Amino acid sequence: MGAPCWRQLLAAALVAVILPAPVYAVASSRGEPTSLRNEAEESAASGQQAVNRELELFRGSAISLSQAMAIAEALHAGATTADVSFDGASDSPVYRVKTLHNDRIWHHAVDATTGKIVGGEAALPLKELDAEDRSNLVALRTIRHRLADAVRVAEQAAAGKAISGGLIREHSRLNFAIVVMSGSDLKEVILKPPGAARRR
């Protein structure tokens, strides 16, 4: 991808905001038994520990999100990534990559340590998706830029390492949404591809 296209995407970055750490509301009504409050607090702490563990696994992963996308796309000539995210919840951390190829959405798991495909692959015909998802994927074909381009721009803009990326629709326009880990913060970067088709 040439420099002019990179500048176009970077100029189209809407915002990079720090995502707040998960907030766990604990009811404070006077009539609530202490045991229920304690259970809610323990559940919140357990959930935060799981998030922290997953982020630590991501920091230590040998394979980057961009590499995982390239590995999955190489399985089918001409495939393009529609959605990708890091998953540290399983025994071995993986990237979950969805690629679009020949009117099918392919699901792959790429080992975050070795870069190998694990668990085979599965495909779903586009016609089996709901209308909004189908419309987004059809629009993806009309955009000059790929999700891989958006990931590179977002990592540069947020000075970090992408942990997930995908498509979102705002005001009937298809955008890329990339979450980047920058230091200890998670930042979301929304990129508006130039010339993206408007669809309803």
Rank of each mutant, 00 (worst) to 15 (best):
E155Q: 02
D103W: 01
V118R: 15
T114Y: 03
L65D: 11
E170D: 08
H171A: 14
A44I: 09
L174I: 10
S28A: 08
S172N: 07
V138A: 05
A70H: 01
R141S: 13
A112G: 10
T81M: 05
A150I: 09
A62H: 09
R53G: 10
R173C: 03
F86A: 10
I117Q: 14
S43V: 00
G31H: 12
A45N: 05
A123D: 15
A13V: 01
D133T: 07
A72D: 13
P194F: 07
V94F: 08
A159W: 00
Y95Q: 05
G115W: 11
Q49I: 08
H145A: 15
A77Q: 02
A154G: 02
S172D: 15
N38V: 03
Q48K: 11
V153Q: 02
P93Q: 11
D103Q: 06
D149G: 05
G183I: 06
G31C: 03
D91T: 12
S29P: 01
I18M: 06
S46T: 13
D111N: 15
L14C: 00
G2S: 08
E155K: 02
S64T: 15
N52Q: 09
V151C: 04
I168S: 02
W6I: 11
R53E: 15
K161I: 07
H108A: 15
L55E: 13
A77V: 08
Q49K: 11
A79C: 09
L65I: 03
S66H: 04
E41P: 04
L9I: 03
L167R: 01
A158V: 06
R59D: 15
A196F: 06
D87C: 06
R59M: 13
S135L: 07
I71C: 11
R134V: 07
L36F: 07
A109I: 03
D133S: 04
R144H: 12
S135V: 01
T34D: 11
V15E: 04
V23K: 02
Q67H: 10
A3P: 06
P125F: 12
A77L: 04
P4Q: 11
P125I: 06
D87M: 04
H76I: 14
R141D: 10
I143M: 15
L147G: 02
R198D: 11
S61K: 15
R37L: 09
R30V: 10
I190Y: 07
A70M: 05
L14E: 10
T99S: 15
R144F: 01
I143K: 07
L140E: 14
R104M: 14
S64N: 08
E54F: 00
L100I: 12
N38K: 03
A150E: 01
A109V: 07
Q156M: 01
S66V: 04
R53W: 12
I105L: 15
E39T: 01
A13F: 06
S184V: 09
A197P: 03
L126R: 00
L147Y: 01
L9E: 03
I190G: 01
I63W: 09
N136K: 03
S28R: 08
G31D: 14
D103H: 08
R134K: 02
S184N: 07
V153F: 01
G160N: 04
